[in-house]
């Protein structure tokens, strides 16, 4: 086989391999658990809105990820039976400084006290806020094994090895009714999944979408919960 033909074959093989990696939707398996505790009835009238906030007590060792909060809010505000959801940064600015880490109510009993402030009560009524959803929790890597080595030489590069890791998402949403100043329920969403990355020349990541799965589950369950269907 001529050198030029050999080079063309090698290039074609590389292209095919890279294409396969990009096109194949490789995803690991995720196990989800969702639990709900209802303490009071819920319902949403037209014009009512909801906000999803991350708990940011300080100093904190496990602050909820910003993209998880926005993911849950996006799920609530999208799809069928969408709920009017105020984005967290917009809410924090509109109610500044009453939901900052230094001033945010620690429990639902503090809400009636906050509502004593005329300016705050007027703003909450203006935006039609009915429910506050506090999200606590985070995603942690709980286990990691294997090894993967990559090297680059003048003639090219490549990786060899096998990596595996387990991610564990654990989140809890507490729902407060702003009008009654009471906690109306809690929903927890847990997800566990193992990701793999085998590598023979090219690494092929098989990622378990643990956090996005926990977000989808929590968002879907919150939507059902807030509309009072269960």
């Amino acid at each position: 086989m001529s050198r030029g033909r050999c080079n063309r074959l090698v290039r074609a093989a590389w292209t095919a391999l890279i294409g396969a990696c990009l096109l194949l939707p490789l995803a690991g398996c995720v196990t989800n658990t969702v639990q709900q505790v209802r303490e009071a009835n819920t319902s949403l009238a037209s014009g009512d809105s909801v906000v999803v906030l991350g708990r940011r007590t300080r100093p904190s060792a496990s602050e909820t990820e910003l993209d998880f909060i926005s993911c849950v809010a996006k799920n609530l505000g999208g799809g069928a039976d969408a709920i009017r959801t105020i984005p967290e940064p917009e809410f924090l600015d509109a109610l500044f400084p009453w939901f900052e880490p230094r001033t945010a109510p620690a429990n639902s009993d503090d809400v009636p006290g906050l509502m004593q402030q005329p300016a705050l009560a007027a703003r909450l009524s203006e935006i039609g806020l009915r429910y506050l959803v506090w999200v606590d929790g985070s995603t942690q890597r709980t286990e990691q094994t294997g090894s993967l080595t990559c090297s680059v030489t003048g003639a090219g590069g490549g990786c060899f090895g096998f990596l595996t890791w387990e991610n564990d998402s654990s989140y809890e949403a507490t729902v407060w009714d702003v009008r009654t100043g009471r906690s109306v329920g809690k929903i927890s969403s847990d997800a566990v999944g193992t990701s793999y990355m085998p590598a023979v020349v090219l690494p092929v990541p098989i990622i378990a979408p643990v956090r996005s799965s926990a977000c989808d589950t929590l968002g879907d369950q919150l939507k059902v919960f807030l509309q009072g269907e269960t």
């Binding site: 500044f96 400084p97 900052e100 880490p101 230094r102 001033t103």
Partner: peptide, 13 residues
Amino acid sequence: LAACRDAMTFFIV
């Protein structure tokens, strides 16, 4: 930025 916002919050409180 969070520290600056906290300065405003603390001042108000």
